[in-house]
Every structure is written in C-alpha cells, then in structure tokens.
Amino acid sequence: MMILLSNPLFGVLLSLALFVLGQWLFDKTNGFFLLQPLFFAMVMGIVVLALLGHSMGMTTAQFYQKAYKPGGDLIFWFLNPATIAFAVPLYKRNDVIKKHGFVILFSLVIGTIVSLFAITGISKLVGLSHVGTASMLSQSATTAIALPLSTAVGGNAAVTAMACILNAVIIYALGKWLIKWFRLDKDPIGEGLGMGTAGHTVGSAFAVKLGSIPGAMAAVAVVVIGVVNNLIVPLFAHLMHI
C-alpha cells in the first residue's frame, strides 16, 4: 500500500481531484467563499492526509513527506514557468510602465514601509511573540525571498512560509469582496499593485482576470516587492529592535 502511495501519482491525483471537486462545489453554491477551490483543496488535502496517516500509524507530517510530497513537488515545479509567464501581460502594457514607472516604484517602496509599521503594530496588539512578529515582516515577498529574510531578522521560516501561502489563499478567496469593500477598482494601477503585493503570483493571476492594467501591475509588484523587501526588511527590523 505504501509503495503505491509514495508514487508521485498519488499526490497529483489527490491535488487534481480535490481542486476539481472544489471548483464543482464552488459553482454549485454560486461561489460560497469557503469552497474556493484552492482553499477547499488545501483544507481537505490536509484532512485526508491526517486521516490516512492516522490509519497507518503515522503523524500527519510523516505521511505528508512520504505519500504527498513526491507528487506535490511535481506540480509545485510548474509554478516556475507560470511565474515567468507574467512577463507577457507585463510586456503588453509597457505603455503604463513607461508613463508611470517612477510612481509605481515609489508607491511600492512607501507602501512596503507603511505596511511594515502596520503589521508590527497588529502583531504587538494581538500579543504575538518576538519570533512570531519577526516572521510576519517579509511575508509580502515571494516565498523564496521571504524565507531567508525571515531567518535573517530572527523569525521562523516555517511560520513565514505559512504566511506567504495564506496570503495567496486569502486573496484568491476574498479578493472579489476586498476589491468591492475598499473600492479598489477605481484605480486599476493601484488595484494591480495591491493584488501582486498581498497575493503574490496567485494574486497576479487574479489580477490578470480583472484587466490588462491590473494584470501587468501585479506582475511588476511581484518582482519589485521581492527586491524592496530584501533591502528594507533587515533595516526596519534593526531600527525597530525586532
């Protein structure tokens, strides 16, 4: 049984089945937000792994490593070509970059600094530990940048990974409503930059559906926010004694 499960096919099959089931349920319920396919597949996937692992006398983490990870890594790899593909919507709106390049850059730098103060404030208010607070700082960067940064400022990389993943899941599930509540669609440039900053590549995929300008701006945000975090987060953590 375990030999069958440790084949990558199990992870691929489980991911596909849960995502497709999520899509179907999401359609059937006219878009109930807890049934967003990504959120549904994540929660149900963990539940399935926990149950199957338990039935075989393993912890969830052990069973995840053995049975799901080979297939999961296979799917995960395709995020590489999918991410560089954002160069295309970006290129198609080069007119906006040429016209507003500086404003876009400044907005992302200032937005990052303001957000860092806000996130530190929220962490302190909720009573998060020192390590927890430090782990929250670099979450707007893409995972591969955020994790080493988190470690560098005294955070826990696993907590930051959770933050990056949940950012994307939250934006994917609630993006439509957040845009409506905060009237972000008034300005397609800000809308796109926000989606890319808060939701990483998933937010960018969401923004591509909103229009050509938000899609291009989200792609800019994913790149620039990564670099800006590299420069600002260590400095911020040092100055704020985090």
């Binding site: 596909l16 597949a41 963990i46 999918a82 295309v88 959770m162 993943i165 590549t201």
Partner: peptide
C-alpha cells in the same frame, strides 16, 4: 512565441498552488 502557453500557465496558478497549501500539513506544530 510565448503568449498562448504563458496564458495557459497563468490560468492554472490557482491549482499549481495547491501543494503549497497542503505543505502546511508538515508544520501543523506551529
């Protein structure tokens, strides 16, 4: 030369992110 494949990949990102979500199973201790 890169448009249609790229568009298809971007359309799949929601799904491609599923393994990242499920990877939280390895860190439930947090």
């Amino acid at each position: 030369w890169v448009d249609s494949f790229g568009g298809a990949m971007i359309g799949l990102i929601g799904f491609l992110f599923v393994p990242s979500g499920i990877s939280l199973a390895a860190n439930l201790k947090i």
